[in-house]
Simulated assay, not measured.
Amino acid sequence: MALKIGDRVPEFSLKDQHGKLFSSDSLVGIKPMVIFFYPKDDTPGCTKEACSFRDSYEEFKELGAEVIGISSDSERSHQKFAEKYNLPFILLSDQNKKVRKSFKVDKNLFNLLPGRETYVIDKKGKVMMVFNSISASKHMVKALEALKEIERI
């Protein structure tokens, strides 16, 4: 069963596209996070999803949030992906799928592809939104709506 609204974000540390260790604890208590799990760098759906977050990145920043993409690709693959599409946010390498498992992100599409799931985590580390859809185009919109709703509260 996936994480639910109200759950606490699992603590995790992974390397980013620059080889630096990122820890979720570095943001809890400081700013909201938008964490999107995606299947694979530089594939059509994942590129569409990442570029939609890129195109709205300033809106996320204005709302005080950090955007974080996670897949099982290597740091080097993430670096190439970020450079090719000018992605300004953090991409984390979860090669052993440990973080994906801690968030309980299941496989999609006949258990062939890693799941595509987006979480909005508030400043206190509480899950405020969970969106699971193989459709890459809706994740950014849902996350932005959820963040705006948090701002209103």
Results as ranks from 00 to 15, higher is better:
K31W: 03
A136Y: 07
R152N: 10
K84H: 12
R8Q: 11
K124W: 04
Y38N: 09
L14H: 02
S74K: 06
K123Q: 03
H78S: 05
G29Y: 05
I153P: 00
K61N: 15
K126C: 08
S93V: 00
D122K: 00
S72Y: 11
V120P: 02
K101I: 14
F22C: 01
M140A: 14
L144P: 14
K101S: 14
Y57E: 08
L112S: 02
M129F: 02
F37I: 12
D7N: 08
R54W: 13
L21W: 13
G29H: 05
G115H: 04
Q79A: 13
V67M: 15
F131Q: 03
P88S: 14
M128S: 03
F36L: 06
K101T: 14
P88K: 11
V99Y: 04
I35R: 05
S13W: 09
V9P: 01
P32L: 02
L109R: 00
L92H: 01
S23T: 11
D94F: 02
Y119I: 04
E62P: 10
L63D: 12
D41W: 05
K97R: 11
F36H: 07
R116S: 07
V130A: 04
Y38C: 15
V120S: 03
S13D: 12
H78D: 01
D7V: 08
L27M: 06
K97N: 08
A50T: 03
L3A: 06
S52L: 15
L27G: 00
D55L: 15
K84S: 10
K84V: 04
A146Q: 05
R76A: 13
I153T: 01
D106V: 14
S52D: 13
G19Y: 07
P88G: 15
V105L: 10
L27F: 15
S135H: 06
E117K: 03
V67N: 09
K107S: 05
S77N: 06
L14Y: 04
Y57P: 04
G115V: 04
G64V: 09
S77G: 07
K48R: 12
G6N: 09
K124A: 01
E145G: 06
V105T: 09
S137F: 08
C51F: 14
A143T: 05
D73H: 05
D122C: 00
S137E: 15
T118M: 00
K142V: 15
G6W: 14
R152I: 08
T47Q: 09
L91C: 13
K48G: 04
L147D: 06
P44S: 09
G64I: 13
R100T: 05
A65P: 06
E11Y: 13
S77P: 03
M33K: 10
